[in-house]
Design a protein around this nucleic acid. Structure first.
Length: 911
RNA sequence: GGGUACUUAGCUCAGUUUGGUUCAGAGCACUUGGUUUACACCCAAGGGGUCAGGGGUUCGAAUCCCUUAGUACCCACCA
């Protein structure tokens, strides 16, 4: 591959992903010798297209799984998709409509057939997209919730729970989605504030000229009214209780009852009761044994009870009925009113509360172990703040409505054999059902054709709550080695929006069917929002296309961009700029690689002191950072781990370390140094690999090849580090930065940029502790800073070469004004001050005086800066803790630094 | 209506468990200077914050307590 300065990720991404697949590198097999690290993908909807939320989730999972692999675990990431009954069925219906086929003209079998066609054609695309961002799933294990084994598990579980008496059939006020024509669970309903009207209507009283006024937001439901209700202590209405009111339009007679449920303050204090269409009214209705009048068809139009409004939509009727009531003089007034209206999460249709017959799962008992496990932190939630919400929900859990009036999904294994609603059996198959039915009904002449299976399917979550068990076929085969090995899984990574839908229920099922938690850790990511804080949605069009992102920034770049902004558990305000940062980082790494690769080390050249020093320092810095990274991973603070890595690589490795190591152009470099530099780089590559699998893999293949691929590599081992050395280097940085700052302030022009070419502190007390050649090629122009601690006596400040000082002056003024005196005026502060005063005294103009004064200030500023760090530096010994081998070589190669400095000073003088 | 959090630099967020050696931090953005031979997708330097407002406890508060304001999420939904 041709090396270019700009890193082009597209080719290597394809190349490496294909290589991984061809060599089955993501596969995992039961291996008792290794510890398992298991992650199950939260199965995306089979209809789904990859969106930013998936990108975030799955990148996190991939980072965890790749790191686990490096740590030597048997890492297993199981992918798969969810059949998502409502969402998929809706899509299939739409697809068929486009083809001119109506669902109502199809038999169930035909429809299911089409649904499978659709699924096979368009479904599961999302898994291909996951491959593009580098997800290292064990693709051979890919599961679908409608797979045979998973479906069979669902049916087994239904039967089991039914036999335990936990599943029952009941009439409930359910959320009815008139568009999808199915019930929804509480969780599938979203409330929205809608501006509507509160209508005040008069109900005549039978046998009296008086009337009662009620307030309602839903006037169309008056046709289903079966009572009026007032508060028992409400004196205004006491005389009405027990009388009969007449429903306008319908002219039906209904009782006037009293119940303390009614709020005297709201509206008129008089409530119309519609038991079939309001959850609270339903309770009132049951309590007072009122009639239930269901006035709606399944599609939200009115039925025969709607009289002349039959077959008209509920919202159309609302307007018409108000017109009619106005004509009849029953409408008192209409106030503007804001009300919360429930909408279907899937179809956005306004929910109709409806009493209907449904299957339920009793939850209270089941929830107990699941509650306990989380409260006792047997299962850990990250971040912890979700614990309270979880607790509250589990303590107030309601029975789970598990039936859905759809075709796409797991059909409820209930078979009716008689006309009576209770004449049913629960069985795995029709054949078995027949046997049972024959036994129970004591009617051996029953035939299969006499059996009708319940038309409903199960809630999608009723299959996905078994996911951790059923992907390893642990429901049907509890002793399956697979499930015993991989279960409980290590971590679950998902969004907090499905904490109850899914996470809580998986915990419940885990304890119920395996008596063991399904996972150790739950990592809840934030929701992905745009940079304005809005949710990403198709309507807003603010969700970037992942494919484009990958194309523009590379998979590694996008991964880094996403991870940079995911502080644990907070929503993520996604900004494409972050991907650019990720891409820039890739490029930086690539160029560091190019630099290192270009070095041809030779055995003759000796390492410089600065190089040895830098090697020693960076190694320690690496281990410091590694410890921090490991800790961040343990706490699931992935973005922290990445940021530490990012700074380690960019700042420490590239900006400081490589700049010190780098020889002057064309100068030789010791092969020993090159080897060590590569070795350190290779360590960095390994810790970067989980974040940026592709670029690291490519570099590994070109540079070191220690392991055939990074899938085979190991995570670097932790080690103690020399904190003292890090402190010392920090000081060196401060000095250098200080000088750069001064240079910048004085706008001193340089023909070449400022670099640190030498940092050569040495061990012996008899040598200058540190000297900095700050200016590389421009050495003759600037000179040196020396800090000479060879003198036993404590010094006043640091020794600064006067020639250096002169040079400063020269440059601060301008090129023409190089000071003439070349005599040594002494290095002490006093001497310099005297010298300056002399200059001021003899200066010709005010301008020059001013200039010198200014220079003096600057000089002493520099001086006090150096003073401030001098005390710290005095006792610093950079090599004190260096490995013996380095010290040895250091001694062998010892240069008389002082001599060298004097030589250089001499050079400057001559200049 | 009930509950849980949150408010720190222009932006996104660490730091609050256990008050004091990270106490005012990071990344990005910004300003200035710079094409050198890894990288301008770059290098170097710099500016920026009464830690939401107010009060209290303390020798000492971003951190603990009270209070006000604002924001987010969860739960329940009143006709």
């Amino acid at each position: 591959m041709k090396i270019t300065s700009k890193f082009d990720p597209s080719k290597i991404e394809k190349k490496w992903y294909q290589y991984y697949l061809d060599n089955n590198l993501f596969d995992s097999y039961v291996d008792p010798k290794k510890k398992a690290y298991t992650i199950l993908i939260p199965p995306p909807n089979v209809t789904g297209a990859l969106h930013m939320g998936h990108m975030l989730n799955n990148t996190l999972q991939d980072i965890l799984i790749r790191r686990a692999r490096l740590l030597g675990y048997n890492a297993c990431w199981v992918p798969g998709t969810d059949h998502a009954s409502i969402a998929t069925e809706a899509k299939v219906v739409k697809w068929l409509e486009e083809k001119g086929i109506s669902k109502s003209n199809l038999t169930r079998e035909q429809f299911i057939d089409y649904a499978w066609q659709w699924t096979k054609k368009y479904g599961g695309k999302i898994l291909d997209q996951l491959q593009k961002i580098g997800c290292s799933c064990d693709w051979k294990r890919t599961k679908f919730t409608l797979d045979e084994s998973l479906s069979a598990s669902v049916i087994d579980v239904f039967i089991d729970l039914y036999n335990k008496g936990l599943i029952y059939k009941g009439y409930r006020m359910v959320h009815w989605d008139p568009q999808a024509q199915t019930t929804l669970s509480d969780e599938e309903v979203q409330y929205e504030e809608i501006k509507g009207k509160l209508y005040y209507l008069n109900y005549p009283i039978k046998g009296s000229p008086k009337y009662l006024t009620i307030a309602t937001t839903r006037p169309e439901t008056i046709l289903g009214d079966t009572a009026l209700c007032v508060h028992p202590q409400d004196r205004r209405y006491a005389s009405f209780v027990g009388k009969t009111a007449i429903v306008p339009i319908a002219n039906r007679e209904i009782p006037i009852i009293s119940d303390s449920y009614v709020d005297k303050e709201f509206g008129t204090g008089c409530l119309k009761v519609t038991p079939a269409h309001d959850p609270n009214d339903k309770e009132l209705g049951e309590k007072h044994q009122l009639e239930f009048l269901d006035i709606f068809n399944q599609d939200g139009t009115l039925n025969a009870l709607g009289l002349h409004y039959e077959n008209q939509d509920r919202f159309v009727v609302r307007h018409k009925i108000i017109e009619e009531l106005t004509k009849l003089g029953k409408l008192v007034k209409a106030e503007n009113y804001t009300t919360n209206v429930g909408k279907s999460e899937r179809t956005r249709a306004i929910i109709e509360p409806k009493v209907s017959e449904q299957w339920f799962l009793k939850m209270e008992e089941l929830a107990q172990p699941a509650l306990k496990a989380v409260l006792e932190e047997d299962i850990k939630l990250y971040p912890k703040k979700f614990l309270n919400t979880y607790k509250y929900w589990m303590e107030n859990i309601r029975d789970w409505n598990i039936s859905r009036q759809l075709w796409w999904g797991h059909r409820i294994p209930v078979y009716y054999y008689g006309k009576n609603k209770d004449s049913f059996v629960v069985a795995k198959s029709k054949t078995q059902a027949l046997k049972k039915a024959q036994e129970i009904s004591k009617n051996p002449s029953l035939r299969e054709s006499d059996l009708t299976q319940d038309p409903d399917v199960l809630d999608t979550w009723f299959s996905s709550w078994l996911w951790p068990i059923s992907v390893f076929d642990g429901i049907r085969k509890p002793q399956n080695p697979e499930i015993n090995y991989y279960y409980p899984t290590t971590a679950l990574v998902t969004g907090p929006d499905i904490l109850f839908f899914w996470v809580a229920r998986m915990i419940v099922s885990g304890f119920e069917f395996r008596e063991e938690k399904p996972f150790h850790n739950v990592f809840l990511t934030g929701l992905v929002r745009d940079h304005l804080g809005r949710k990403m949605s198709k309507q807003l069009g603010n969700s970037p296309d992942p494919n484009n992102l990958i194309g523009t920034y590379g998979a590694d770049g996008v991964r880094v961009g996403l991870m940079l902004s995911t502080s644990a558990g907070n929503d993520l305000l996604f900004n494409e700029k972050l991907c650019r940062q990720g891409k820039n980082f890739s490029n930086k790494i690539w160029n560091a690689f190019r630099l290192i690769k270009s070095w041809n080390g030779n055995a003759i050249t000796q390492p410089t002191k600065a190089q040895l020093q830098a090697l020693y320092w960076f190694e320690n810095r690496f281990f410091q950072a590694l410890g921090q990274i490991n800790l961040a991973f343990e706490r699931y603070r992935i973005s922290d781990a990445l940021m530490i890595t990012y700074k380690l690589v960019w700042e420490d490795y590239c900006s400081w370390f490589l700049e010190i190591i780098k020889p002057k152009y064309g100068a030789p470099i010791s092969s020993e140094v090159v080897d060590k530099v590569k070795e350190l780089f290779e360590k960095l590559i390994r810790i970067m690999h989980p974040f940026m699998p592709f670029i690291t893999e490519e570099i590994n293949s070109q540079l070191i090849k220690k392991a055939p691929t990074l899938i085979h590599a190991t995570w670097p081992e932790s080690a103690e580090f020399d904190a003292n050395c890090l402190d010392n280097f920090h000081l060196v940085k401060q000095i250098i930065t200080g000088f750069r700052n001064l240079r910048k302030q004085h706008n001193i022009p340089f023909t070449s940029p400022l670099r640190v070419h030498q940092i050569a502190p040495v061990a012996s007390k008899n040598e200058p502790l540190i000297y900095l050649d700050l200016f590389g090629d421009c050495i003759e122009k600037i000179g040196y800073l020396t800090m000479d601690t060879s003198k036993p006596e404590p010094q006043e400040g640091l020794t600064l070469s006067v020639d250096t000082f002169r040079f400063w002056i020269a440059h601060i003024s301008n090129q023409n004004r190089t000071p003439s005196p070349k005599k040594n005026i002494g290095d002490s502060k006093e001497a310099i001050r005297n010298y300056l005063r002399g200059l001021i005294a003899s200066s010709q103009s005010d301008e020059e005086k001013h200039f010198i004064k200014k220079t003096e200030n600057e000089f002493f500023r520099l001086h006090s800066f150096l003073d401030s760090i001098e005390s710290k530096l005095k006792n610093t010994r950079f090599l004190e803790n260096a490995p013996v081998s380095i010290i040895k070589r250091e001694k062998e190669k010892k240069v008389d630094t002082q001599k060298k400095i004097q030589q250089l000073i001499q050079d400057i003088k001559e200049f």
